[in-house]
């Protein structure tokens, strides 16, 4: 079990992390998701021991490892740009972790070679041990980097944007394969990503971060369907955001009361969030958002309709079932958010 307690970190005047608390169960696959500058990579590097926190503790199975150097923490780390040793063959790269052990724990040369070959076939690169990293494709290099990290039998695998430098198709294949490997080897893994799709697809739990704080920790379902903050709602998945007024238990936009319950929100300005696929269109009905259709295009399995809301001068994105006939550009319709969320105004 990995426990992060009250971790904080500053780079000069810039607060990178602020009072971070997180517990990771053995066998979990965790994504640290956030925009650049959110502190996700810094947190990963602090867990690895590549960076040291200004305050707080990192515990591995209840034991404080804050003072332990990276080499003593028993973690595998996979870098965004592979960080392979260019002057070594692929097999030498993979065997490096074993070959630098003290004489007592060091396996013999032939054992290291056999182990490297075994790991290379695990990452589906069997027979490529004698090549140099420069002779491999990006996806192959990242798999070598992974095999190299696994060679030291880490209790924890840390991956810093592992697919960031790869093209879309390779990324997708590698993603699925990494998930399988994680389960097959019974690893505990944490990976950093700014790609929400990657996080939603891969992770058991997602840690959404912004500006050095954790905004929400939850499963893909929880984070997507029940965002804890306007930031999470906005960052994970697509969202329509409208400035509204709450007055007397009613939600008002451009002077019109919407057919949306205000819940327990106090009177005053607020923001209304709803996803494009949670909107229905009608001809004339009170309590909806009057829009003029400005653009329609095919987006995968549905129609993406863009409607301009004149009163607040915002474009609302709506996904419609591809089975129905789409509206026409210029048509005046009313949009009803079937599911929506209200957040206090002022937040991003």
């Amino acid at each position: 079990m990995i426990t992060v307690q009250n971790i904080s970190k500053r780079f000069g005047d810039y607060p990178a992390l602020h009072d971070i608390n997180l517990t990771i169960q053995p066998g979990e696959f965790i994504a640290l998701l956030g925009p650049s500058g959110s502190g996700k990579t810094t947190l990963l590097r602090i867990i690895a021991g590549l960076e040291f926190q200004d305050g707080g503790k990192v515990l591995f199975d209840g034991e404080d490892v804050s003072d332990r150097k990276v080499a003593e923490r028993g973690v595998g780390f996979v870098f965004q740009h592979y960080a392979l040793f260019r002057h070594m063959t692929v097999a030498e790269n993979v065997g490096f972790g074993l070959s630098v052990r003290g004489r007592k724990d060091r396996p013999s040369k032939s054992e290291i070679k056999a182990r490297a070959e075994e790991l290379l076939s695990l990452v589906q690169l069997g027979g490529l041990g004698n090549r140099y990293p420069a002779q491999l494709s990006g996806g192959q290099r990242q798999r070598v980097a992974l095999a190299r990290a696994l060679a030291v039998e880490p209790q924890l695998l840390l991956l810093d944007e592992p697919f960031g430098a790869l093209d879309a198709k390779v990324r997708k294949d590698l993603r699925r394969w990494l998930r399988q490997l994680h389960e097959q080897m019974g690893l505990t893994s944490i990976f950093v990503t700014h790609d929400q799709e990657e996080a939603l697809e891969l992770a058991d739990r997602i840690v959404v971060m912004d500006h050095g704080v954790i905004e929400q920790v939850g499963t893909a379902e929880q984070v997507y369907m029940d965002p804890a903050s306007p930031f999470v709602s906005d960052f994970v998945g697509e969202i329509n955001r409208l400035p509204v007024m709450i007055a007397g238990g009613e939600v008002q936009l451009g002077g019109i009361s919407l057919a949306i319950p205000a819940g327990e929100h106090p009177d005053g300005p607020a923001q209304l969030h709803f996803r494009p696929h949670d909107v229905e269109l009608a001809d004339h009905q009170p309590g909806g958002l009057p829009i003029t259709i400005s653009n329609i295009f095919r987006k995968g399995g549905c129609w993406r309709v863009e409607g301009h809301h004149a009163a607040v001068d915002r474009v609302i994105e709506i996904d419609l079932d591809a089975g129905v006939a789409p509206p026409i550009i210029g048509q005046q319709l009313v949009a009803f958010p079937s599911k929506s969320r209200i957040f206090a105004a002022g937040c991003p």
Binding site: L50, K69, A71, V75, F79, A83, F85, G97, A145
Partner: peptide
Amino acid sequence: GKDVEEAAATLGASRAQ
């Protein structure tokens, strides 16, 4: 790259190694 050195460190190599 600094990451190459960091990679060596995560694999258990000392500074000298």
